[in-house]
Computed example of a mutant assay.
Amino acid sequence: MHNLLERYRQLRELISESSLKCDEMLKQHTYTRMGGKADLYVTPANYEELQLVLSFARTHQLPLTILGFGSNLIVKDGGIRGIVVNLNHFNAIIRESDTLIAQSGAAIIDVSRSALTHHLSGLEFACGIPGSVGGALYMNAGAYGGEIADVLVSALVFTPEGELLRLTKEQLELSYRHSNIGTNGYIVLEATFQLVPAEHDTIKAKMDELTEQRESKQPLEYPSCGSVFKRPPGYFAGKLIQDCALQGVQIGGAQVSTKHAGFIVNVQDATASEYIALIRHVQQTVNERFGVQLETEVRIIGEDE
């Protein structure tokens, strides 16, 4: 604890005090409403502050975690050691001709709405994805037949050493729910999307249709991490789970949604341990019944309590 307070004081001398918190409860920053404390929680005001934080982490050999919106994420009950960085202050969205340049902390939903405003098509699929631009790139987010790789041109990133790079989508190695951003330790600063001019009403009609589908099928009334599992080749995860009669099964406050079997919802102050235990139970049951190993789409990070 003494060492943590010392690091807090040292970091406070480098960045604005409003950008830094100690022992921040991460359940306040995740869509599941679960997660323990971050030792140091930083919301940089600008790229310069972020570079200072990266340099500080390297100098003091502190682990550094980028949180994003915490939508496709489970933070364990023991929290995260070192520095957790939230880039939500980086949320500008700029139009240049038929492209949109969005900072990593902007909501991908807001980028899709900006595209609508500018009569640009291509991001309709993202109108209901509850994550940041950075998070969407990290996992090549997709829905309803579209994905980030379809419209991404390039990304501006910091390397772990603080070097600024412009990377093409090919260099990010995007595939189904995957990129090399995490592997290489890149920190996304902004993304450039190539879109296509289209009629406002046509774009809006598609977004309205997808929003209706999402609201009618997904359990949005409870905290969750979204779709828990990747789609196994030749199957649908939700159908496999449903056929195992797992809907409604509950461990502690975590429940397999009765509305959509691919979702696990926090119905009553679930802990991350309960949520993860239910994920493992679903995986084991589906594997025993159908011989299919469900792979998680959600990231699980942090330490056990």
Rank of each mutant, 00 (worst) to 15 (best):
Q218C: 08
F125V: 05
I264E: 05
V228N: 01
D77S: 03
Q250P: 02
H29Y: 15
A57R: 08
H118M: 04
F263S: 05
V286L: 08
E305F: 02
T159W: 07
Y31S: 15
R12W: 00
G248D: 10
L123P: 05
D304M: 01
S154H: 01
Q10V: 00
E297N: 10
I80A: 03
A45S: 14
V84T: 14
I66D: 03
E221L: 06
I148A: 07
F263H: 04
A198R: 09
E215G: 00
L152M: 06
S224M: 07
Y222V: 04
A198H: 13
E170S: 12
P44T: 13
L172M: 13
G185P: 04
A141S: 13
K76Q: 15
L189I: 14
K204Q: 14
E199W: 01
G131R: 09
V157N: 07
L52C: 01
Q284L: 12
S114C: 13
R231F: 01
S227K: 04
L278E: 07
N46L: 10
A45W: 01
C225T: 13
L167K: 13
V75N: 09
R95I: 01
Q213M: 12
A115W: 04
L73A: 05
H119S: 15
L278R: 05
D208T: 09
E297I: 11
I15P: 06
G70F: 11
E274V: 06
Y138E: 06
Y222E: 11
S273D: 14
E170G: 01
L165V: 07
V133K: 07
N266F: 06
T32R: 00
M139E: 10
I251T: 05
G226F: 05
Y275C: 08
I181G: 10
L87V: 02
A245Y: 02
T211G: 03
F69I: 03
G128T: 15
S175K: 12
V42Q: 06
P44Y: 03
E6W: 00
Q61K: 13
C244Y: 01
G79M: 09
E190Q: 14
T117Q: 14
L11S: 08
H118A: 14
Q28N: 15
L195F: 08
G238I: 00
A245D: 15
L240P: 03
Q51F: 00
P63I: 04
G253T: 04
E305H: 05
A198T: 10
S19T: 08
T30L: 03
G252P: 04
E49M: 08
S132C: 12
I83H: 08
L195Q: 06
Q171E: 15
D77N: 14
S227N: 11
I300E: 10
G253I: 01
V256I: 11
G185C: 05
Q268C: 09
E96H: 13
G128N: 13
G79S: 05
I264V: 14
E215D: 13
S97T: 09
E124Q: 15
A254W: 01
S112D: 11
E124L: 02
F125H: 05
E221Q: 15
R9V: 02
E305K: 02
A155M: 03
R299D: 09
V249W: 12
Q103A: 01
K169H: 12
E297D: 12
S121R: 13
A92H: 12
A272Y: 11
T30I: 01
G185H: 12
S19I: 01
F69G: 06
V85R: 03
R113C: 10
E305C: 02
Q247D: 00
G131W: 12
S71T: 10
Q103H: 02
S227W: 06
Q247M: 15
